[in-house]
Write a protein that binds this DNA or RNA. Structure first.
Length: 274
DNA sequence: ACTGGCTCCTGAGGGC
DNA sequence: TGCCCTCAGGAGCCAG
């Protein structure tokens, strides 16, 4: 799945191509997504309006219209957004298409259909939806003191804690492993056992890893493709994810793969002892 | 109150 | 070549 960096790369790629364009028409494949598809709301609040800007909140892409309605798109595990000439044939798993006023069409393709499309007609509606979502990793409020306090007496592993969207927005399974490797923290360490100093290391690692991933255009894993169809190139820099049995690039120990809350977790048993 | 497990769905890749 | 199994970047819901 696209995590925060991939969504941000899509946002940056798409912005110059669709900002200012008017959305003329919405079409839907008829297949359900994770949330009910708001075809009627698209017709009522989106069609006939211009795209003002593209924003992002966690892993949600927010297409803000000139009437203050917002088209919110989540890519789930396998979602992609692309721009195509409206004459290009629709392909398998193109579930929503928005025809623009310049002959192009914005298409949401999602084979697994874990993604979602929503329309928020008012600011209140949008805020209500995001009320439980944690801070953005690059916001000032995301800091060691916040994490230390939020961890409180929780026993859950720090890796699962970081992947909880109520704690911080946008960190998924790949970057959780990469971040903890960068911070020299064992992913299984209980959140309550981390000192402020170690949370500080984690905050720095979060920003370093996400920043670097965005700069590299996201991670090339399986099927991620950005809005211009280019694969990312961060994969060559992944230090632990997908490297089970291979040598740690810092110490040479073999990278371990374990399961945590059902998700594959990678770490160096030597560099991340606690 | 917390926590991990299960679930939705399709496709890719490995073993035989 | 084909069949069957496992696994995959998310996140809401539910039971213990």
């Amino acid at each position: 799945m696209p995590e925060l960096p991939e969504v941000e790369v899509v946002r940056r790629g798409l912005t110059p191509q669709i900002a200012g364009r008017k959305i003329l028409q919405t079409t839907w494949s008829g297949k359900p997504l994770r949330l009910p598809v708001p075809l009627f709301a698209c017709q009522q609040a989106i069609e006939g309006h211009k795209i003002r800007e593209i924003d992002r909140r966690g892993k949600y892409l927010l297409i803000r219209m000139d009437n203050s309605a917002v088209l919110a798109i989540h890519l789930g595990m396998s979602g992609r957004l692309g721009l195509f000439p409206e004459t290009a044939p629709v392909t398998r798993h193109d579930h929503l298409c928005w025809r623009l006023d310049n002959g192009m069409e914005l298409r949401f393709n999602d084979s697994r259909r874990f993604g979602s499309v929503q329309v928020f007609e008012t600011r209140t509606e949008e805020e209500a939806f995001f009320i439980l979502l944690g801070p953005e990793p690059f916001e000032k409020s995301f800091c060691a003191a916040y994490l230390f306090q939020n961890a409180g007496n929780r026993r859950r592993p720090v890796k699962n804690f970081l992947m909880d969207g109520r704690v911080v927005a946008g960190i998924g399974n790949i970057y959780a492993s990469e971040i903890l490797y960068a911070a020299h923290v064992n992913p299984a360490t209980a959140a309550r056992n981390l000192s402020r100093g170690r949370w500080e290391k984690i905050v720095q690692a979060v920003r370093l890893i996400l920043d670097r991933a965005i700069a590299c255009g996201g991670t090339t894993v399986a099927d991620f493709v950005d809005s211009s169809g280019n694969a990312g190139n961060f994969q060559i820099q992944l230090q632990v994810y997908g490297r089970a049995g291979e040598p740690c690039r810092r110490c040479g120990a073999r990278i371990i793969k374990s399961l945590m809350a059902g998700r594959s977790t990678y770490y160096c048993p030597q560099c991340q002892q606690r």
